[in-house]
Amino acid sequence: MTDHDDKELSTKEIILNTALRIIQQEGLESVTLRKIASSANVNLALVNYYFGSKDNLISEALKLMFDSKVLALDILDDRSVDPITRYRRYMLHCAKMLQEQPDLLRQMLGNGNIKFDTAHEYVGYLKKLGASKIISVLREITGEEDSEVLASMMMQIHAACFFPTFLMRHRKFIFGEQQSLPIERQIDLLFDHYFSRYKQSPTQDR
């Protein structure tokens, strides 16, 4: 790689990181190419050169956000604790991130700005989201071998964990002034009920 290539990569990363910071601090609605260019101290033409459009830039920034913030899949690899505890810690990490960045939920549900050029890229993205690792942990917890059953369990648990975040902005309209339980308690309740038939305790690391 030449010095010129290094400079181009550095400039692209600066633009991408700036876009990510604006998304995190101000939300997706506040993102404009001019704001990103100004904050990154680069020419607007350079932003267009590297990314082509605002949608493409947001898509790349959100992919980076998933990689660096949401996934934390190494939590699922921690063999020093039982699988329910590993899964609970992972779900708690994800839920807290989604509370801090509620726009991410829309992206995770596939109804947002993340774009894929090929089916192969999309499959790779799904693998990156950790579906196979989560199913493996569920298999370890339950002893279930049917992959379709395990996939359904994963979807049920994730929906139950993340749906309250999705409803958060409408909570007062639905439930009035009643306060919501802390996210830790919500996940404890879910895991206590969902995994009650299994011997391991899901709350031993509380």
Rank of each mutant, 00 (worst) to 15 (best):
M1V: 10
T2W: 01
H4K: 15
D5H: 11
D6W: 05
K7F: 06
S10K: 09
E13K: 05
I15K: 04
L16T: 05
T18A: 08
A19I: 00
L20D: 05
G27V: 05
L28K: 11
I36P: 04
A37N: 03
S39D: 14
S39M: 01
N43D: 01
V47D: 08
Y49M: 00
I58A: 03
S59G: 01
E60Y: 08
M65S: 09
D67W: 12
S68F: 03
S68D: 08
S68H: 13
K69W: 06
V70N: 13
L71V: 00
A72T: 02
L73T: 09
L73V: 06
D74F: 04
I75L: 14
D77T: 01
D78F: 00
R79D: 05
V81I: 11
V81A: 02
D82W: 04
R89G: 00
L92Q: 09
L92H: 10
C94Q: 13
C94D: 09
M97C: 10
L98Y: 06
F116M: 05
T118H: 04
T118Y: 04
T118V: 02
A119T: 15
A119D: 11
L126N: 13
K127E: 14
K128N: 11
L129D: 06
G130L: 01
G130P: 06
A131G: 11
S132H: 11
S132Y: 09
K133L: 12
K133S: 06
V137K: 05
V137D: 01
L138E: 04
I141V: 12
V149P: 09
L150W: 00
S152K: 14
M154C: 02
A159V: 09
A159T: 08
F162E: 05
F163W: 01
P164E: 00
T165C: 12
F166D: 01
L167H: 03
M168Y: 09
R169Q: 13
R169E: 10
R171C: 08
K172Y: 00
K172A: 03
F175Y: 12
E177F: 07
Q178C: 12
S180C: 07
L181C: 08
L181I: 07
I183Y: 02
Q186P: 10
I187V: 10
I187A: 00
L189W: 14
F191A: 01
R197G: 15
K199S: 08
P202V: 10
P202E: 13
T203N: 15
Q204M: 11
R206S: 04
R206N: 08
R206P: 03
